[in-house]
Amino acid sequence: MNLIVEKAQTPTPLTILKIQGDLDGSSYQSLIKKAQELYDSGVRRLLLDVSEMPFMSSAGLVGLHTVVTVMHGQQPPDMEGGWSVIHEITHNMDTQVTFDPNCKLLQPQPRVQKTLDITGFSSIIEVFTDRETAVASF
């Protein structure tokens, strides 16, 4: 899996992180690490371009979930434990009426969209099919 970072030319700062390749057990931790690096460097709005991500496993879901919580300003938990931090953040995420404002998805492939729909992630993380609309939504 490759991760490509792009700073969008928008009035408000927006970073686009492109995921190329499968997001699974072997790559989800790299994604989390990159999200944390971006947050530490000041990124607060993140558009995940998953147009070239053909597959997302259950471990990939964990990665995606953690990226969203990282963009809410919390450290990802210790890989061995520490769920209490995520619980606090997901409580905030889940009580909101609208989608998460800080992290969105662009052009998931059909299989990935299906996973997002089945697991309910598509009701928490907003999905866009075209880049202009996605960028304008932040």
Binding site: L61, H87, T95, G120, F121
Partner: peptide, 13 residues
Amino acid sequence: GQGMLLGAFPTIR
């Protein structure tokens, strides 16, 4: 039937 996976969010639909 819609339904979210378990263990990720405090309340699920």
